[in-house]
Design a protein around this nucleic acid. Structure first.
Lengths: 215, 215
DNA sequence: AAAATTGTTGACCGGTTGGTCAGGTTATGG
DNA sequence: CCATAACCTGACCAACCGGTCAACAATTTT
């Protein structure tokens, strides 16, 4: 129904487009199913149904269930890391940490499945991304800790332990994704609306920034 | 090796003792395996091996895998609720919330498996304890929120949103259990020692209590 | 236009899993 | 000491799951 439409923008043609689209469909479905059932509870058949493709087709694009899972985890990890881009350019804690909190909350709101997959992966001992934790994440974390320590040395915030401050921000923001179901249940069973997400943002910012003496 | 020792205290004899002991063994093994592999990834055989019992014996005490899982989840939920016992008797936020943070951190430290099972259960939509969330947990939460609001009204702390403060405490403390592997990896691969757990406690207490103007 | 490459899929398979059960052992009450 | 009930477990089974493959369809290249 769509072979004469204007497909094939930049790739090399229809083949490229088909591959891109199918991989996207599969990864999207996989992210959701892995998040809702865990790696062990997820089945290729359910992912296939969710993606609207035959199971054999999944194995054409991703050799094994683990390969597919690995790709899902890496995708969310990339998003996770980029949330701190605004962190570095900031001049003071209120701006930098405030922006980071906002960015992390955006992820919790718009990538709840990915966040859960990440949480699940770490909870189970990070079997597939342990190397990332030991290299990329460790370097990344040390960098932010150094930045926070600089602010402390400059007298721009109270002398709290940068590492645990970092963990607290991670935990507080991801809670709204990973424990989203609990939050929703305690919100009369309804998802948070725009106004409530604003309240979340303000609450965390207020407590954290005041807590580190950055206001 | 122990049949003439002073067993059978209050139950009705050896039968009672055997049942109690085997159920304990199974639940302990199940908690660990469910935590490390998730419900879907856990197998009755692995739980049996961990408990040192034949698989068929597990099904003698717990009809199905789900029954066993349900029991594990309920156990940790009870512990979780009781962590707030010191909350109510406190006169001011610094004491009450401080004690609650300590209690929650103790759980993270001494019941990491249970904490992970709980997190996993909620992340997957609370399939087996949804009713508890809607009744017990909801009532419990409303009660604490009211207590915090009272402190605010009495001018003992800043007017922050009690609900999101609560979530922040949950998140910050559970992080050290649920994301314990990540914390450990970022700690040169070593578990936190006594001194470091003290630092965690002090960091969270300091930031939260100052953040709500309770110091 | 035909050859080659890439994409598609129903049917199938070996291995694993939760759960069953029959036949046994051990404890308890009378 | 016997009868009953509780406990134990190796062997077994049906269902399911990840993964394979052969045959076919569509697209691209020559």
């Amino acid at each position: 129904m769509n072979q004469s439409a204007g497909i094939s923008r930049n790739g090399r043609g229809k083949r490229t487009e088909i591959r891109r689209e199918n991989e996207r469909l599969i990864l999207e479905a996989a992210e959701k199913v892995f998040a809702e059932a865990g790696f062990g509870g997820a089945t290729m058949q359910v992912i296939a149904d969710q993606a609207g493709l035959p199971k054999a087709n999944l194995h054409y694009y991703f050799a094994t269930k683990e390969d597919l899972y690995r790709q899902v985890v890496r995708n969310i990890f990339e998003i996770w890391l980029h949330a701190a881009d605004s962190f570095d350019t900031a001049a003071d804690p209120a701006e930098g940490i405030g922006a980071y909190i906002d960015a992390k909350l955006e992820i919790s709101r718009h990538h709840p499945f990915g966040s859960k997959v990440w949480a699940s992966e770490v909870m189970h001992g990070a079997p597939v991304i342990q190397d990332y934790l030991e290299t990329t994440l460790r370097d990344w974390t040390e960098g932010r800790i150094a930045a926070i320590q600089r602010w402390i040395d400059q007298g721009k915030m109270a002398p709290v332990d940068p590492r645990h401050l970092m963990y607290m921000i991670w935990a507080a923001t991801q809670h709204y994704a990973d424990f989203g179901h609990q939050v929703e249940t305690l919100n009369s069973g309804k998802p948070l609306d725009d106004r409530q997400w604003e309240e979340v943002k303000n609450s965390i910012r207020t407590i954290v920034l005041r807590g580190i003496g950055a206001v």
